[in-house]
Amino acid sequence: MLLITTSVGATRAFGAKVASIARPGELYALEGELGTGKTEFVRGFVNEIDAAVVVRSPSFSIVNIYDTARFPVYHFDFYRLHDASELDEIGFDEYLTGDGVCLIEWGTIFPSVLPPHTRPIIFRDRGPHEREIRFNFDLTGTGS
């Protein structure tokens, strides 16, 4: 499916929509260049579940964990990683089998570490305010 957003608010609203159908154990791999709205998507997603949580970029910390009322959200950023083996050492597998939802920025740079049920979301730039967002799961929550 293709979605065009024309504001940061619309990208967040898409995140909120995905949050409303998300279930523990799911993994969303976010792909897109710098400044295409990956973190804004996560902000919309997390704040839909818990408005009080402050979503920050995990580029430096690699993973931020938000303990929301519904399930924990594991907000990863692979931006600084160079090698899939680095993920072994931060215990990435443990998050996959966990009780929460993984949202992974730059999530498709190591395809080999992603489980088969991964849902990719691709962000593309169409100018200063316009973003093209591609995904292939069902937003109504009745299955993908």
Binding site: R56, S59, F60
Partner: peptide
Amino acid sequence: ETVDDAAGEAFDKVGKL
């Protein structure tokens, strides 16, 4: 504190651009 990126992160990402 910052609500999104850290200042050093902004330097690194702008540096990459």
